[in-house]
């Protein structure tokens, strides 16, 4: 791949270089914390690529993995990414997000591997108790099968420690045993920025370059980098029912229950996971600035406001992660 920039991107790059040169190479204080987070993430991406044999990057089309892709560009361009993109598709994803996923991978010219929970169901690897049940938890089987199929020894993910209390305990480079399981009580100590990437055969790592980012950081970075995101992150009118304090979207997979009133509301999604367990929030935020304002003002956590699967018990995420979930 040629390192020579096109004339258009060169002009843009030069303008940007001039703006930075005026700053004498020192980080811009107004953006100091995003610069720091960005550089830490680039460092992690390069370290893991250098020290593992066959990594992949989990790309769902959601905002966190969109940020990961930009960080990978910053870490590796003008080279192609030294890893493929991988998505575990539950088959219950929002079509806007899947379309975005495919378009973004094509735009970057990178390889996208998709493995589907439906295929795991067809092959008898996953057995559903109810046809319409959430496939969120079943992703683990498909994910671990995909890791084995391709021999991946490291998976980059967009998980953040601020999302959830079990994730707050997770290492940046997190070890998985040969069963894909996480042992939170016996994690390797992680000192300074010195990541221990040694593995025995069959084991792998999950690597989280944006561990230290918050939801607000992610949106500020998306705004700063002018990154496109799927349309459902912005306010739109949608049919929903109110259930247990959540706004449940009305879809063929999640029809209203008997006695529930369907209402049309202005909503947006804060996370874009499996349709059967992801709820939008009431919102009129139609621009990035409005989303930033809303994120600053919100009184509910990202998952608390939107995820049915995390509310089962105090330890839902910890249990899923131990089994090999993202």
């Amino acid at each position: 791949m040629s390192a020579v920039l096109t004339s258009q991107s060169r002009a843009k790059a030069e303008a940007s270089a001039l703006a930075r040169a005026a700053n004498d190479g020192l980080p811009d204080r107004a953006n100091a914390h995003l610069d720091w987070l960005e550089s830490e993430a680039i460092h992690i991406l390069r370290e893991v690529v250098a020290e593992t044999r066959n990594p992949a990057l989990l790309f769902s089309g959601g905002k966190d993995s969109i940020v990961l892709l930009r960080l990978a560009e910053r870490a590796f361009r003008p080279d192609r990414f030294p890893f493929p993109l991988l998505h575990i598709d539950t088959g219950h994803n929002f079509p806007e997000v899947i379309a975005f996923r495919d378009a973004r991978a094509a735009e970057l010219g990178e390889t996208l591997i998709v493995r589907s929970v439906q295929a795991s169901i067809d092959a008898g690897r996953v057995v559903l108790r109810r046809p319409a049940e959430s496939r969120n938890v079943h992703q683990t089987v498909t994910l671990l099968d995909a890791i084995q199929e391709h021999g991946f020894d490291a998976l980059f993910g967009g998980a953040r420690r601020d999302e959830e209390k079990a994730r707050a305990k997770e290492r940046i480079l997190s070890h998985r045993d040969e069963f894909g399981q996480w042992d939170p009580k016996h994690q390797r100590p992680e000192l300074w920025d010195l990541y221990n990437a040694r593995l025995h055969p069959g084991e792998h790592f999950r690597a989280f370059p944006i561990s230290n980012w918050t939801e607000l950081d992610v949106w500020q970075y998306i705004a700063r980098e002018k990154l496109a995101v799927p349309s459902i992150y912005f306010a739109h009118a949608r049919e929903v029912v109110e259930r247990h304090g959540l706004l449940v979207p009305v879809t063929p997979l999640t029809p209203p229950r008997a006695g529930e009133a369907v209402v049309r509301r202005s909503v947006r999604f804060r996370t874009v996971g499996d349709i059967t367990c992801t709820c939008p929030v009431a919102s009129t935020a139609a621009t990035l600035d409005a989303i930033l304002e809303e994120t600053l003002a919100t009184r509910l956590t990202e998952r608390g406001a939107t995820r049915m699967d995390d509310q089962t018990s105090d330890a839902s995420m910890e249990l899923r992660k131990k089994e090999g979930y993202f």
């Binding site: 790059a13 030069e14 190479g25 680039i42």
Partner: peptide, 28 residues
């Protein structure tokens, strides 16, 4: 070199790509 183009100078904690004027045997 950065994704945004060339810089005249850079400082900690920036992640960058450095080019040298002499070709040496350099590795990780």
């Amino acid at each position: 070199v950065t994704l945004d183009g060339a810089l005249d100078a850079a400082a900690a904690p920036q992640s960058v790509t450095l080019l040298l004027d002499t070709q040496l045997d350099i590795s990780r």
